[in-house]
């Protein structure tokens, strides 16, 4: 379709180039427009990544207002009214989903999040997204005016410098203060584990009997040049590993070249987090464990025997 506008917004500057590229692809060549709304709340670089936008709305919010999705949505709605877009596109981050939902509630519009792909069709916006905790894909058509899509973005796309400076429009701050007070915000320390970037992962589940036995898994990971991952019970319930290691629906989603699942039965919420791995190995006592159907190589056996044997085989002993 041509001659339509997609309005892009994200609280996170690093998401904007990817969103702009997705929006441009959706409107296609020709008279379609891509407009961008950015937060100007002093909480981060906003106006730098604007290459590819035909117009930029600066949402002038009180300092550090991004913790309040109501304020953000009110401001975004003003940009939406000015742009009159066919689609409003945000990043499916936690803040993005929250803003999308509040905007949809305020404007009584269709919204979807975690969207893998979308297309503008005459009838509405066709989307495809994971459903059933990642076990299946769903196709929906968002109907009615002002639909909002929160799209999953892959690896960050580098920002494109604008060829011609876009038109910039300031959106004045909403009247009145927000109703949520920010007590404290801490930026997570960089240099922590970024398991999403790992090339190889050795992951452990409930097959592990006690915390001390993690050394077995760590040894295997070292021998493979891998980082250690885990399932929800190991992180959230037992607390043997921090959430940085947790792979699954509400943990991290990974796509390493090699994923070794040790003592993991393969609950659906875990499988969705590792399904995109290139090669999957499962080591489990139970040959009927669901993980086996999702694996390339399977070893039926006790991890307490198999893992030390693997470490020896890798060290050439």
């Amino acid at each position: 379709m041509s001659g339509e506008t997609v309005l892009v917004f994200s609280e996170e500057a690093e998401a904007i180039p990817g969103l702009l590229a997705a929006a441009r692809a959706a409107v296609g060549p020709g008279p379609g427009r891509v407009e961008l709304a950015v937060l100007a709340d002093g909480g981060g670089p906003a106006g730098s990544a604007v290459g590819g936008a035909d117009r930029v709305y600066r949402l002038l919010l009180p300092e550090n207002a991004r913790h309040d999705p109501e304020l953000v949505a009110v401001a975004l709605r003003r940009a939406q009214e000015a742009a009159n877009p066919r689609l409003t596109l945000v990043a499916s981050t936690k803040r993005g989903r929250e803003t999308a939902a509040r905007l949809a509630g305020a404007t009584d519009s269709a919204v979807s999040t975690g969207v893998a792909s979308f297309a503008l069709e005459p009838e509405g916006v066709r989307i495809r997204r994971e459903v059933l905790s990642g076990n299946a894909l769903g196709e929906e058509v968002l109907l009615g005016p002002r639909p909002i899509v929160a799209v999953m973005l892959g690896a960050p796309v580098p920002a494109v410098p604008p060829t011609t400076p876009p038109e910039i429009i300031d959106v004045p701050p909403p009247e009145g203060a927000g109703r949520i007070a920010l007590v404290e915000r801490t930026v997570k320390p960089a240099g922590g584990l970024r398991i999403e970037a790992a090339e190889r992962i050795v992951s452990v589940g409930r097959g592990l009997r006690k915390k001390e036995d993690l050394s077995l898994i760590e040894e295997l990971a070292r021998a493979m040049g891998a980082v250690v991952g885990c399932t929800r019970p190991i992180a959230a319930e037992a607390g043997w590993l921090s959430d940085d290691h947790w792979i699954g629906l509400t943990g991290h989603r990974v796509k390493p070249r090699l994923y070794v699942a040790v003592g993991i039965s393969g609950a659906v919420q875990h499988l969705v987090g590792m399904r995109e791995s290139t090669v999957v190995v499962a080591i489990n006592k139970d040959p009927n464990a669901p993980i086996f159907a999702q694996s390339d190589f399977t070893v039926t056996g006790d991890l307490y025997t198999v893992v030390p044997a693997l470490v020896r085989a890798l060290s050439g002993a």
Binding site: P69, E70, A73, R97, E98, A100, A101, R102, L103, A104, G105, A106, V111, S112, T113, G114, E130, V131, S133, G138, L249
Partner: peptide, 12 residues
Amino acid sequence: HFTGTIGPRVAA
């Protein structure tokens, strides 16, 4: 479905 939209949408 895991859209995570219902709570904030009701709030709005």
